[in-house]
């Protein structure tokens, strides 16, 4: 570098931002990418776990079904307890070095990061999803059964859309936690924001200034995500009021129905 590092705090921060801006942005991009993908897969894992955990068993079911479901529930419990009970940093070490030391497979650090974040989020979301499913009142399940829906259809069309809506705030929470917690992935050298922040700090002994920039970026990411999720929740809730449809029953009987054809069923 040709230019000299300024003396003042503001000066140093601006200097780092100007010269290392692209590095920080690279890191921020990877942080956001791992957090988003990890949260998405984590939610999917959590949904599946939550659904399995809430499969009802009755005395009328076959022995095989009962055995399979019980085994699945037990396995998922072990999974949830293990991943909630150990730090993600430790999980990252185990996962990455497990492969490196004992197999010939070499995952990229980014892939390892995504897998660890997903599995970790999944363990939390499993419990959240279970709660979300139970939060939908039982009457609606009976209403669905009474018109002949199977357990699977009841879940898909009635319970899950509401369960997922009810746990949206927790999904948002998890995303924000993941944006921050990807920082621990620097232990396996994932080049996310924390990793770049440390690298720049080391170059000029500007730890405080570099991490000032890093924290501003984290804050921007988390704030933007939480706002976007709010908007999404509003969108899912739909309008606060409804329009009365035309009440001209003569028009209806003559085949001139005047009611809007709604969008296809909520895609999950």
């Amino acid at each position: 570098m040709t230019s000299v590092l300024p003396e003042s705090f503001i000066g140093k921060v601006l200097y780092l931002a100007e010269h290392y801006g692209p590095a920080y942005l690279e890191g921020a991009k990877l942080t956001l990418f791992i957090a988003l993908v990890g949260t998405l897969f984590g939610c999917l894992i959590g949904f599946v776990c939550g659904i399995v955990q809430t499969i009802p068993l009755s005395k009328n079911d076959s022995f095989l079904k009962i055995a399979v479901v019980k085994l699945a529930k037990w396995t998922l419990n072990v999974y949830v307890e293990f991943f909630r009970g150990t730090p993600m940093m430790v999980q990252a070490m185990l996962f990455y070095y497990g492969f490196i030391q004992y197999t010939s497979y070499r995952p990229t650090t980014t892939l390892a990061g995504i897998v660890v974040v997903s599995i970790n989020t999944g363990a939390y979301m499993a419990e959240t999803m279970r709660g979300g499913i139970f939060s939908v009142d039982k009457g609606q399940t009976e209403g669905a059964k009474a018109i002949g829906m199977t357990h699977f259809q009841t879940m898909l069309y009635v319970i899950l859309p509401q369960a997922i809506r009810n746990i949206m705030p927790q999904i948002g929470n998890n995303l924000i936690i993941n944006i921050k917690d990807t920082s621990v992935l620097s232990v396996i050298s994932v080049c996310e924001l924390m990793y770049h922040g440390k690298a720049v700090a080391g170059t000029y002994y500007t730890t405080f200034e570099s991490f000032t920039i890093v924290s501003i970026i984290y804050l921007t990411l988390t704030f933007a995500c939480s706002r976007l999720l709010r908007l999404l929740e509003k969108h899912i809730d739909g309008a606060d009021s409804y329009d009365l449809a035309t009440t001209d029953t003569l028009a209806h009987t003559s085949g001139m129905t005047n009611y809007p054809h709604k969008r296809e069923e909520d895609e999950l």
Binding site: G139, Q140, E142, G143, K145, A146, G148, Q162
Partner: peptide, 18 residues
Amino acid sequence: AYRAKVGMVFQSFNLFDN
């Protein structure tokens, strides 16, 4: 399949809120 042919109306309505 049997339930589809036997309708039920509940005290607490049990409509689908979503």
